[in-house]
Design a protein around this nucleic acid. Structure first.
Lengths: 126, 126
DNA sequence: CGCATACCCGGACGTCCGTGCGGGTATGCG
DNA sequence: CGCATACCCGCACGGACGTCCGGGTATGCG
């Protein structure tokens, strides 16, 4: 019942198709990468990560003030990042201080967070 | 009518809040970054970018075969990436060959695509 | 010239995700 | 001890996004 709409299924350039297929990341790797990228592709969370990187440690309300989001949105973002293990929480009295996790990939912080800022500033041509 | 539910609005650590606020990327920068990250955070598109990086150039149907997605999904993914300027199209007869754009940030390809693979392979500890 | 192929396009559907809202818990202060 | 604060949580709404499906266009071949 496959819609006759599609191709024969034979590659037109089998060599290149195989070259790409063989070295593609596994589904698990793909999921992990897209998972991290998804977490970083939300404005609230991205600004939040920047803020924590700059301030080292802040309580929830101050993070909200720093990034200009509501406490609800900030709290939800922190929850997701904490679940993913990218930030950690230190409770002190009524306050909950958050900071980037030790497990936060250092190269990713350096090469992505900062590099991407540089990219967006200098490498665009439109 | 702000829900009395929220804080006074006064930062508990004004110095850190200011430190973070001052150096945060602008809304436009944030949008651009999240835009690129969003494009890379989809399994189809991510595998597609890998495949093009490896094969240099492929027609639509071969890309679909390489990444194991339908032609529809692949075509849609290529359209989005082309709209964003991350891939370019070369038409030859009935075929449409795609490749990574010259404008595709080279550091991003090197430092993100490849680096993230390395990260996902070696830097996890769970 | 007519048919099959390879791709493009627009609409519809289902899904996921972020936000706001109300309520809940624990801390610190008086 | 009682009240305000700072945060956490569950629900429901709305918007955005990816995929499927039908149809459309252009190329190449016989």
């Amino acid at each position: 019942m496959t819609p006759g709409h599609h191709r024969s299924g034979l590659p037109l350039d089998p060599e290149r198709v195989e070259r790409a297929r063989k070295r593609l990341p596994s589904p698990e790797e793909t999921d992990r990468l897209t998972g991290i990228l998804t977490l970083m592709s939300d404005p609230t969370r991205l600004r939040l990560l920047y803020a924590l990187d700059l301030a080292e440690e802040m309580c929830v309300g101050d993070v909200a003030l720093a990034i200009g989001s509501s406490e609800d949105a900030t709290g939800y973002a922190l929850r997701l990042l904490r679940t993913a293990g990218l930030v950690v929480r230190r409770k002190q009295g009524r306050l909950a201080y958050y900071r980037l996790s030790e497990d936060f990939p250092e190269p990713l912080r350096q090469e992505c967070l900062l590099r991407l800022v540089a990219l967006s500033q200098g490498d665009e041509s439109d």
